[in-house]
């Protein structure tokens, strides 16, 4: 009962070349996610101006994770290009590398927090400072979005292998690639934000 099946009954209605509705939906969703992080970061700014704010140096691991996610953006872009060129072997390798880099990014973020913990900065629980808790919540929710991207890659992968029909629609990979670049840019924004606004 996919929507494709339902839509396939319909004849075409010529209405000019517009953006694919699913891609458009993704862009609106990206706007929505931006609002969520805008809320987080503005709450951070409001809270920072109140008493008892802890000045935290970002852990080194965050620098490495930044590099990892930037590389993953490049690999998914190359994967998208090879998909368009129908170089499927190259595409599969690159998309796998992207997913692995995504997981590496998440692990590095986790290492970053254990680094902070070793320096005696408590993220959650009794005695935690809101500055550290904010870092934990915001970075944590960004990691969830990266993991969502990894899950999406796994999903199209499994679909590509399980389906008997060869599917050459570029829409899914294009959408994942857009989302991946967005998550990358979101992290760069957060990283710069945390470095400057302390």
């Amino acid at each position: 009962m996919s929507d494709n099946l339902i839509m396939s009954q319909y004849q075409n209605t010529p209405s000019g070349g517009r953006i694919h509705p699913h891609k458009f939906t993704l862009w609106v969703a990206i706007g929505s996610i931006c609002m969520m992080f805008a809320a987080f970061t503005s709450a951070y700014i409001v809270k920072r101006n109140q008493s008892k704010w802890l000045d935290i140096d970002l852990p080194i691991a965050f620098w490495y994770s930044t590099i990892a996610i930037i590389i993953s953006s490049i690999t998914i872009h190359l994967a998208f290009k090879s998909f368009k060129a129908r170089e499927m072997v190259r595409y599969r390798t690159l998309i796998t590398i992207t997913a692995i880099l995504g997981i590496v990014f998440c692990v590095l973020q986790f290492i970053g927090f254990s680094e902070l913990k070793n320096h005696g900065i408590q993220i959650f629980g009794q005695g935690s400072n809101p500055a550290a808790s904010f870092l934990g919540v915001i970075v944590g929710f960004h990691v969830l979005h990266v993991l969502a991207g990894v899950a999406a890659i796994l999903f199209i992968f499994i679909k590509a292998y399980s389906s008997k029909l060869k599917n050459y629609s570029i829409v899914p990979i294009e959408m994942i690639s857009t989302f991946w670049h967005f998550v990358d840019l979101l992290w760069i924004y957060l990283f710069i934000f945390f470095m400057w606004v302390r």
């Binding site: 929507d3 494709n4 099946l5 839509m7 396939s8 009954q9 319909y10 004849q11 075409n12 209605t13 010529p14 209405s15 000019g16 070349g17 517009r18 694919h20 509705p21 699913h22 389906s163 029909l165 060869k166 599917n167 050459y168 629609s169 829409v171």
Partner: peptide, 25 residues
């Protein structure tokens, strides 16, 4: 290409082309 067409684009391509004609029957 219209968006109705865009939405079932993947189906049209993935199924063989002779089913396209009676697809809406």
């Amino acid at each position: 290409m219209s968006n109705e067409a865009a939405l079932h684009h993947s189906v049209d391509v993935s199924t063989s082309h002779d089913t396209h004609g009676d697809g809406h029957m």
